[in-house]
């Protein structure tokens, strides 16, 4: 065992150690966890690579504040508005939880877009990370659908009419549109069932989807390793070395062809070719 023995162990310590070993022997969590934490990542990893984790943290915050809101919220056209007013005005810290959930939603959208921007600018979606990008794109759309479905739950005029328009936009699409509209509205019209349908989409279906896709996203990221910034010091050095080697090879090839003359001779130029 890795731990140092400091004096004899009491029964409890022995028992816990044995339990941990038992679990590790069967699941590999201890070994796996250690691998996960101490695996190497490129040294040039930058602050911009924290945005994905931040999106994940915000998703966690949305889940927690959302669960608290769900304890007070009543998804029924007659009581929804009142229950939101109750949360906002009466429940202890209710305004705070609701405020965090609302601002958290906007923050998550902003961070996810910034994260996508960094991945795009770095070309981090290129081989071998194409599928990481695809799972990410699906996450982006699900995050936006969360905003759309959550907005209606407040059941005030502004949200109601905005959602009517939005759902009608979906419904206006050719072929599948009318069906999507019917599914979202729970029928051809906005009615009492629409609210509970949006509620279940907002708090069960999409969060389940997001959690699943975050899992997939992370699987790819851990399996493939986080990319190195294309302009990390090491990468630039490697690029230069490679370039130099290629030039040297080209010169050698030229020199090897009988009768071809290169001036200055290949062995002179090396020191001057700092910039490519």
């Amino acid at each position: 065992m890795a731990t140092k023995d400091i004096g004899p162990k009491n029964e409890l310590q022995k028992g816990l150690g044995a339990a941990a070993d038992f679990v590790d022997e069967r699941s590999g969590v201890k070994t796996g966890g250690r691998w996960l934490l101490f695996r190497n990542i490129p040294a040039g990893t930058s602050w911009f690579q924290t945005l994905g984790f931040t999106a994940m943290a915000l998703f966690g915050m949305q889940a927690i504040t959302g669960i608290i809101l769900a304890m007070y919220y009543k998804p029924d056209p007659n009581t929804a508005f009142g229950s939101i007013a109750h949360i906002t005005n009466e429940v202890t810290w209710g305004w705070m939880v609701r405020g965090m959930h609302k601002w958290g939603a906007s923050a998550m959208i902003v961070i996810v877009f910034l994260h996508m921007g960094r991945v795009f600018i770095w070309g981090a979606y290129k081989y071998p990370r194409e599928l990481t990008w695809v799972t990410g794109a699906i996450l982006l759309m699900m995050t936006m659908m969360m905003g759309l479905t959550g907005y209606l739950l407040v059941w005030d005029q502004k949200a109601y009419w905005a959602t009517v328009v939005a759902v009608n936009i979906f419904a206006a699409a050719p072929i599948l549109g009318p069906y999507i509209g019917d599914i979202l509205r729970a029928g051809p019209e906005f009615g009492p069932d629409t609210l509970s349908r949006f509620y279940s989409i907002h708090m069960l279906i999409i969060p389940g989807g997001i959690a699943t896709f975050i899992g997939l996203h992370l699987y790819f990221i851990i399996r493939l390793g986080i990319s190195e910034p294309p302009w990390a010091k090491r990468a630039l050095r490697a690029q230069k070395d490679e370039e130099d080697a290629r030039r040297a090879a080209a010169r050698n090839r030229k020199a090897a062809i009988p009768g071809s003359v290169s001036f200055p001779p290949a062995w002179v130029g090396d020191g001057q070719e700092v910039s490519r």
Binding site: A85, T88, R98, S106, L148, Y151, Q157, A162
Partner: peptide, 25 residues
């Protein structure tokens, strides 16, 4: 600092509501 508020309940005969989606739409 920027407290959440709550608008008018759905469908009374008022005009002072603004039908706006969330800013990202």
């Amino acid at each position: 600092t920027v407290r959440v508020n709550i608008g008018e309940p759905v469908n009374p005969a008022t005009t002072d509501f603004v039908p706006r989606p969330e800013w990202y739409f």
